[in-house]
Computed example of a mutant assay.
Amino acid sequence: MMTDPIADMLTRIRNAALARHDRTEVPASKMKQAVAEILKSEGYIADVRPSESNSGKLTIVLKYGRDRSSAIDGVRRVSRPGRRVYVKHDRIPRVLSGLGISILSTSHGLMSDRDARKNKLGGELLCEVW
């Protein structure tokens, strides 16, 4: 039984990027789909789609540079099942002075730190990506 499916997804992405795989598959859920869509819109992954072989999985296509360096340098899970971290809109931390992003779960759904600050929404700080 998995206690933290978001951390599992982030670890699969991190491991696949370190191993220079083209894609990775994760078990599907609405929250994982939303996190992957934010990563795609921010330019950290190339694509996210339902898996062709198994309908219960998401295929995440990773993004690399010309020298085969990954677009994702690091990922950190902030709020865990054992320790939830909530922030107000004016207390959302900047990741690497704005070079990375935070993903928050707000009352209006999942969004990046930039969108949450713009909409003046706080919430649960799920993870940081740089």
Results as ranks from 00 to 15, higher is better:
2 M>W: 09
5 P>Q: 10
8 D>V: 10
12 R>D: 02
12 R>V: 01
12 R>C: 06
13 I>V: 13
14 R>I: 00
14 R>K: 14
15 N>D: 09
17 A>H: 13
17 A>R: 10
18 L>E: 05
20 R>K: 15
22 D>N: 13
23 R>Y: 07
25 E>L: 08
25 E>V: 01
25 E>S: 12
26 V>H: 07
27 P>R: 12
28 A>G: 02
28 A>R: 11
30 K>W: 02
30 K>V: 00
32 K>F: 01
32 K>L: 02
33 Q>S: 11
36 A>V: 05
37 E>V: 07
37 E>G: 06
38 I>N: 06
39 L>S: 10
39 L>W: 14
40 K>F: 04
44 Y>V: 02
46 A>V: 00
47 D>L: 02
48 V>A: 06
48 V>I: 08
50 P>C: 01
53 S>I: 01
56 G>W: 01
57 K>M: 12
59 T>N: 10
63 K>D: 05
65 G>V: 01
67 D>A: 14
70 S>D: 09
70 S>V: 05
71 A>P: 07
71 A>H: 15
73 D>A: 14
75 V>F: 11
75 V>L: 15
76 R>Y: 02
76 R>V: 06
82 G>F: 03
82 G>Y: 04
83 R>G: 00
86 Y>F: 07
87 V>C: 04
87 V>I: 00
87 V>R: 14
87 V>M: 01
89 H>S: 06
91 R>C: 00
92 I>Y: 03
94 R>K: 13
94 R>N: 05
96 L>F: 04
97 S>H: 13
97 S>Y: 05
100 G>Y: 06
101 I>K: 06
103 I>K: 13
103 I>Y: 09
103 I>G: 08
103 I>P: 08
104 L>M: 12
107 S>K: 15
107 S>Y: 01
108 H>D: 12
110 L>E: 08
112 S>D: 11
112 S>V: 04
113 D>I: 04
114 R>M: 11
115 D>L: 15
115 D>M: 14
116 A>L: 06
117 R>M: 10
121 L>K: 15
121 L>I: 04
124 E>Y: 03
125 L>E: 03
126 L>T: 07
128 E>V: 02
130 W>M: 13
